[in-house]
């Protein structure tokens, strides 16, 4: 086991590394994440060998530096101070820990204060909400896609980006969270792709444009895109909520939740809820839920509506009679 102390600009983060090899870098997939622009996505890697630990440069842009000189590989001694780009990182092996029992060197249970966690979760939820607000806005834009002129398309794209950047900025200012962590580009791309897919599927279906089935298929594609967005956001949220979970588990949970969400959107919200509430207004049995296919079905539906009207008529008549008495 080794301890890794990352000296950031405002605070020091301490990580305990027990699983090897461990990658250090800016990417969220790294064992130790160093959020600094001078650090490459996958910067370096710590290996455990029979005679101690070795730090290897993974062809990073800015390299690793020891005692003022750029190195490819370092054997980690008892206590080593290495510079990654602009960040200083200290490596402390178990030997020295056992000898000194220096409690100050050991990592805290949470490397960040508790209220930070809450803030970040709130930020994630806020983003999810704002994306929800954006989706309809973007749909509105995309209805007129492709626009008559290319300049219009460019203008709309810029406007869209500005909006998203503004939200990202607000979040980063209030929550001190690096906006890059929220993968806005992926979210935007997915929303756009899913909406475009919906349009394309509907477009290339045969002449019956208002046919329910085509639209349902197209909508499913869109919902798949929404599922992916939920997946990304959940993964991000879990990183703060459950930092100790392994990435593998987080992924499964996120996949599960997004699949359930799609199912809910598809079956409950889109198909049933809207229709059912309308039917309930009409006092219809839910067995009349099947979508109309032919003019006979329409006549049947109108018949049901008329029957509901008759019930109201009788109620009104009774009320009138009792009122007259």
């Amino acid at each position: 086991m080794i301890l890794v102390k990352v000296h950031g600009s405002d605070h020091v983060e301490t990580h305990k590394v027990e699983v090897f090899p461990c990658v250090i870098g800016r990417s969220m997939h790294c064992g130790i994440r160093v959020d600094d622009p001078s650090v490459s996505a996958r910067h370096a890697e710590v290996h455990q060998t029979s005679d101690g630990y070795i730090l290897k440069d993974l062809f990073s842009t800015n390299g690793i530096w020891q005692a003022g000189g750029k190195v490819k590989e370092v054997k980690i001694g008892a206590r080593e101070s290495i510079v990654f780009g602009d960040v200083q990182i200290e490596f402390i092996t178990a030997d020295i820990l056992e000898r000194t029992h220096d409690s100050k060197l050991l990592p805290h249970e949470h490397s960040e204060p508790a209220h930070w966690l809450a803030l970040k979760i709130a930020a994630s939820l806020l983003i999810a909400l704002l994306v929800g607000v954006f989706v309809p806005t973007m749909e509105q834009y995309l209805w007129y896609w492709p626009p008559e002129k290319l300049s219009e398309l460019a203008g709309r794209a810029i406007l869209l980006w500005l909006q998203i950047s503004a939200v990202a900025l607000v979040i980063s200012v209030f929550c001190k969270v690096n906006v890059k962590r929220f993968n806005f580009h992926k979210v935007l791309l997915l929303i756009s792709l899913s909406l475009v897919a919906e349009r394309l599927v509907s477009h290339f279906m045969p002449s019956v444009v208002y046919n329910l089935h085509n639209l349902a298929g197209a909508k499913f594609l869109k919902h798949l895109g929404y599922g992916a967005i939920i997946y990304i956001l959940l993964l991000r949220l879990q990183r703060y909520a459950f930092p100790k979970w392994q990435l593998r588990y987080r992924r499964w949970v996120a996949i599960g939740v997004s699949l359930i969400s799609i199912t809910i959107i598809e079956l409950v919200i889109e198909r049933q809820l809207g229709e059912r509430s309308r039917m309930a207004d009409l006092g219809m049995p839910s067995s009349a839920l099947a979508p109309a296919q032919s003019s006979d079905d329409l006549m049947f539906a109108i018949g049901l509506t008329i029957a509901a009207t008759d019930q109201e008529r009788i109620r009104q008549l009774e009320r009138l009679e009792s009122g007259d008495d």
Partner: peptide, 15 residues
């Protein structure tokens, strides 16, 4: 009481 329905008529026109 109002409602909306989609259907295809015998002449295969979606409505």
């Amino acid at each position: 009481r109002c409602r909306q329905l989609d259907l295809v008529n015998p002449k295969n026109v979606g409505l």
